[in-house]
Design a protein around this nucleic acid. Sequence first.
DNA 1: TTGACAAATAAGAATTATTCCTATATAATA
DNA 2: TATTATATAGGAATAATTCTTATTTGTCAA
Lengths: 149, 149
Amino acid sequence: MEITNDNNPDFFRTQCIVHNLKITPQRILIYNELTGAKNHPTVDNIYRSLHEKYPNISFDTVNRTLLTFYDIGLVDIIESPGSQRRFDPNKENHHHLHCIKCGKIIDFTSSELDALSIPLEVGKHFKVLQKRVVINGICEDCQKKTAGL
Amino acid sequence: MEITNDNNPDFFRTQCIVHNLKITPQRILIYNELTGAKNHPTVDNIYRSLHEKYPNISFDTVNRTLLTFYDIGLVDIIESPGSQRRFDPNKENHHHLHCIKCGKIIDFTSSELDALSIPLEVGKHFKVLQKRVVINGICEDCQKKTAGL
DNA sequence: TTGACAAATAAGAATTATTCCTATATAATA
DNA sequence: TATTATATAGGAATAATTCTTATTTGTCAA
């Protein structure tokens, strides 16, 4: 049976235990904040939201914790033309559109793309945890803006 | 006829002209350095290589120029868990394996993946310039390292 | 070919982002 | 509940990126 995030409220706890991570209040807060977030938040985004409610939490803890989550495959770090890291809870399959003009990153889903098969040769040498299609291009808004030129 | 980089030594010049960019010696150097580079260089990588041969070139020029190239779709900025931006000349189709343990990014090719079709709905709203499959996981070396635990 | 001008550059300063340091606190375990 | 390895807060340090300004240079039109 495959373990998934869905329908498993203890998914986070299980992952911590499996990876020998202590279940701290900070980690729970950060995990919840991230999974509740839209739009691929930066460390600072997560830190600010949490800091409003819990003024004692430190930036370093948020940063370190997010990197730890990445290390154990709990969240994703996404392609980011901006200068800040952006995180993505990888709970559901989705793909990314990247506007090279405004930097926007748009999620989209496609069962067809979800089903794409990884070349056998890759699977032999690399343990695949997650796969995604990343598309670079120009979003609708930016196309309209340049249309006048 | 589709314009491609291959078999067209004036590709770079053409792109500059199309986008109203002046063809400066610095831009030529940076473009050549990037397209000749392996392994997804950072700004600093490119700057250092060039600075050895041309001590007058400035870091800012390298950085600004690479971002300009990205703006016009001439190069790619890739998914990078590290804290530095990493660039990739997008001249040929290829896909990425990302080791979440050591941060390595490995290129691989697959004509099957090159041929994947973008959902119609996406194409309607987004001008697709480039597409790529990004796979997160654990590389062979890192698998061996953890095997002993 | 030259002159005018918009655009690009170098250099370094400023800002922003990330990571490190260390004393204290806390979760997990026996 | 005592122990211990791990995690945290806070701030300092470092690293990465962007901005500012004076100067230079490519391009275009005469």
